[in-house]
Design a binder for these strands. Sequence first.
DNA 1: GTGAAAGCGCTAACAT
DNA 2: ATGTTAGCGCTTTCAC
Lengths: 355, 355
Amino acid sequence: MTIIRMEKDITIYDIARELDLSPTTISRALNDHPAVNKNTKQRIADAAAQMGYRSNLFASNLRKQRTNTIGVIVPRLNSPFMSSVISGMEKMANEAGYNLIISQSLETLQKEMANAKTMFDSRVDGLLVSLSYETDQIEHFENFINRGIPVIFYDRVAEHRDCTSIVIDNLQAAYKATSHLIEQGCRNIVHITGNLKRNVYTDRLKGYKYALVDHDLAYDDANVLINNLSEEAGEQAAKQILDMKTLPDGIFVSNDTCAVSCIKTLKQAGISVPKDMAVVGFNNDTISRVIEPNLTTINYPGQEMGEMAVRVLLLQMNGTEERAPSNTITLRSELIIRDSSLKSKVSPKQRVVLI
Amino acid sequence: MTIIRMEKDITIYDIARELDLSPTTISRALNDHPAVNKNTKQRIADAAAQMGYRSNLFASNLRKQRTNTIGVIVPRLNSPFMSSVISGMEKMANEAGYNLIISQSLETLQKEMANAKTMFDSRVDGLLVSLSYETDQIEHFENFINRGIPVIFYDRVAEHRDCTSIVIDNLQAAYKATSHLIEQGCRNIVHITGNLKRNVYTDRLKGYKYALVDHDLAYDDANVLINNLSEEAGEQAAKQILDMKTLPDGIFVSNDTCAVSCIKTLKQAGISVPKDMAVVGFNNDTISRVIEPNLTTINYPGQEMGEMAVRVLLLQMNGTEERAPSNTITLRSELIIRDSSLKSKVSPKQRVVLI
DNA sequence: GTGAAAGCGCTAACAT
DNA sequence: ATGTTAGCGCTTTCAC
């Protein structure tokens, strides 16, 4: 039988013994405490490096009662939007010396609650959440709030007195998108969107509705299709549209994935986009610039949203005890006009509309 | 001045006092130790739930010297392939009760080394790595290996006696892709690929080369374009191709992003795909089914790769002290033939080629 | 089946 | 500028 010889971990006590100093001084020096002599610091740093010391975060966390860890709960990881968000979060967190623990709810309330519990037990210093489709109560975050652990919602948010939300102006975005379709001559516009439990979809529905009303067009529930905005759902929706007694002349879809598969199906059925039906998507995923015709869409700054979420969280974690004054942070987005919605000529300058 | 009253954490001592038992028994009961009376266990579980107890992972980790955490180092988070991988990892890890700490190297060696250090200091129980473009030495993982912390490479792997690698057969995939182009009548094929420091790209280059040779076609360095496979790089590459003295009749690109932007640029220049140039991509990202013509590509099972990576890691972390016998695990992939490469008719049955 | 005691490695009061 | 001491909450001998 072989015994694998494993290197033993070096502690501050080992360094202390080596340099004939107290563990306290070692600890202070390693944390760059001002009250330690420069030379001593250097000696300690050298010894630490030479001896292969690594700090034990668990001992430190146990003692300090904080973890330098941010929890992220996300509906799904593998969408272009969400991976941009996560990428932004990771970048910011990393710069600030924080770790990220990420888990996905897979759009179910049950997993979201389980994830929240894990995060709680992992004692994250703060939590970033985008809600699942199903979620209709947010009591599972009360634990955090009661103990003063900041919770921030982003994208799919909930109203909570003590929580900041980070969003784009979904209502405005949808309003601008729909108005754009109307300006292009559409008079009968279908809206495809997601579960109305989620703010993003209710707000977009409102924007769609208000735009119609403001342009003296009738709003009709029958023109609103609700699904999960997946590729399959897009195909499905296209078929529903093709079955309508009067075909619409415009479609506003709540994400690009669904919009693109919808366009593909419509084209296969002989519908010309934008001539017969103009289409607008949402998110500005890569596919929007690949589909033909290129998809008019809302540019949703995922990376920025991720960065902002962490930035605000850091402020709340390290700032004063007071709650942040502003409860909602709205990021800028924009309508990017491409060929899928253009029935008339538009100069390149007018192809971006700020929201 | 207001004092925010914060709920205090309940410890096993609190429960012990409450039930007039020792902390030891509480600890054992909560960990389902067999030597604790069933009734006592139940009483303790009830009390814990009622008092709102949560275990302190840091104290536990400090004591047990393990963390239930898996570290993941990834070049970039926001690619469709990588987010599938991560999604698979998260799913598996979560099921096994492990947390994931994720960081991105942003394709630089320097960040990769920094990330490795953070992971090391966070005392992850195991590490999953896909190498950055730049990485040309892997000493920064020796720390882990020396202490018996398993390191697994996936996708962009390195040779290491003690580390398992998880890959697809890149050589075969490229061979099949190139052969397919040749079978479609291509005689002058360009290959666009990434940094040859990475196995994935060298192997694909080899597969391309061998396919040419086996079909009695000349290999020419001038037909190999190396770039970072980004959207911009695709545009750039297309321009280079258009400038060639004799235009190629086929292109094999090492990812879909680059292949798609290449096709877009070629089409704008009046080249017909596949008639003038047949194109094959790699990854089977969503865009491959959106571009017109739909892109022939290699289906790369990201989600599965992520799941497999965690599964193997769990085995190594919890299994015997011995190293896993197999050093490389190769996942199945497949060539999916679509219109971008089809100059002749092919029956639907022949549209998928296993690799 | 249960308990007493020690210690994982670190940091923060409180000295000096 | 440095040291002493205590304790964060848990698990693990060892004892009964």
